[in-house]
Design a protein around this nucleic acid. Sequence first.
DNA 1: CACGATTTGTTCGTATGTATT
DNA 2: AAATACATACGAACAAATCGT
Lengths: 246, 246
Amino acid sequence: MSRRGYGRDSVYRTIALQLQNRINAGEWLAGQRMPTEAALREEFGVNRLTIRDALDVLRQRGVIESRQGSGTFVTNPMPVLEIAVDPASPVDDGSGHASTRSVIHNVNESVLAEGPDPDDGSAHRLAIPRETVVRLDTVTATAGDPFAVNSYWLDGRRFPHLTESWIGDAPLGTVLRDVFGVTAFYDWRAFSATAAGDLEVEHLGGRPGAPLVVRDGVSVDSDGIPLYYVRRRIRADRAAYVLRYR
Amino acid sequence: MSRRGYGRDSVYRTIALQLQNRINAGEWLAGQRMPTEAALREEFGVNRLTIRDALDVLRQRGVIESRQGSGTFVTNPMPVLEIAVDPASPVDDGSGHASTRSVIHNVNESVLAEGPDPDDGSAHRLAIPRETVVRLDTVTATAGDPFAVNSYWLDGRRFPHLTESWIGDAPLGTVLRDVFGVTAFYDWRAFSATAAGDLEVEHLGGRPGAPLVVRDGVSVDSDGIPLYYVRRRIRADRAAYVLRYR
DNA sequence: CACGATTTGTTCGTATGTATT
DNA sequence: AAATACATACGAACAAATCGT
C-alpha cells in the first residue's frame, strides 16, 4: 500500500485540480486575489512547498499569476487582437494587412538589436553566404503597447546601415520601400507556436514558457529574389491571425 | 548585501543558464543522457531541489526531458510536419489540403467522444440554439502516429447520429460529403497557440504546458450556412501550417 | 522472473531573502 | 517601520519507475 498518492493522484495535482474547479465555479473571479499560500497550506493541511507545486500547475497553464509581496491572482483574460491576413494578396506593405476587431492603430516598430547571424539555417533560406547575413530584432507595438517581437535576417550587403537609415518607428516593409525602393511580396508564411523565452518575456510580459504564436516566412522582391526571413512572436493570449475566405 | 542572488542571479537560474550553454556547446547531444541530479548536485555544490529547479527551467523550454527511473535526456528534435494551406482555395475537402515535406499520408481521424457542448460561445458561431450544439472530439493521425486533437461543434439536428454513421476513420469533411452530401467551404480560419492540457498530452504525448499550434475556424456549406466550428491542436514541435504564395 | 541498485518524483520541515502594502 | 506574501535554498526521507544482474 502507498501512504501517499502518485502521478495523477499526487497531493499537489489533486489540490491543483480542486483549485481549478473552484476557479471555474467562480469562487475567485478573474483579477481577484486567491488565498495566500499560508492559508491554503492551512486549509489543505500540507506543506507550503506542496501548495506551491499545485499553484505551479495553474501558473503553468496561465490560469493564475503570482506577484511577490502582493499575492496570487486569477488571470485576467486580455482582449485578443485579431490580425487579418488576406489569403489572396501576397503584397507585404508592412502594416496595411494588420487590422483588428479591437482596431490595431498606430502600429510602430522599433529596433532592439542588430548584429551578425547567431543562428544556423537562415542563410540558406535567403540563398546568400552565411557571413553576409545580418540579424535584426524589433518590437512591434500598437498605441505604445508592445504585442510582438520580431527577428529579421537580411542580406547585409543589399541593405547596409539599415538601423541608421531606419525612419522613425516605421515597419520594416515601409523602410525597405521608402529607403531602398523595393517592394516586398510574400513567398511563404508559416504558422507555428513556441514557448516564451527571456527576450519575449522582457518585451511582451507574461511568464517564461507561455505559448506564443509564431509566424515566420520569407519575403521576396518583384524578381523573386529573397529579401528577408522573418520570425514574429506574439503572445497567444493577446492575438491571433485570421484568414477570411468570404 | 545579499548572501544569495535573486531573480536572474538566483542560483537555479544561473545553473539553468550554464546547463543550457553546455547543451548548446554540444557537451550533451540530442537524445543523450545528462548527468544525474545527484551528480549535478555534487558538481554545483547545491541542494538537489535547487538542481531540480534549474532542470525545470529547461524542461519548461522543452530542451530536456526526464524519465523516472531512467534519467534526464536532451530532447531529440522531432521532424516537423509541414501542413500546406492553399491561401486561395476555400474548399475544405477534408484531407487533400494536407501535404508535407515529410509526406503526410494515410491521414485518418477517429472519434474520441461525443456529447453536448460543454463550452460557451460556440453556438453563436454557428448561429443555432445552444441546446442543439453537439461537440465531437477526434484525433488525427498519419501512419498510425497521432499528430492533432480536434474538437468540432456542429448542429445536432442537421447531423444526427454522426458517430454511428462515421465511415471508418475518414476525416470529418469526407464524412459530411459522403454521408450527408454537403461540401464544406472555409468561412474563416485563425491561427493561434495554447498550452497543452491533459487531453492533448494523453493523445499527443509531450508535457503539460507545451506549446500547441491552434487552428480554429468555421466551415460553411455552398449556401453560406455554418456547418461546424472546429478547433484543432497540434504539437508545435511536430507541425507547422505553411502558406505558399508562389 | 525476482531482486537490488539507480534515478527521478513527491512531500515534509525549516530558514531566509525580497517585494509589496 | 512593520507586517504580509511570495521567492529561493537547504536537508531529509520515501515512492515509483527503470534497468541490469
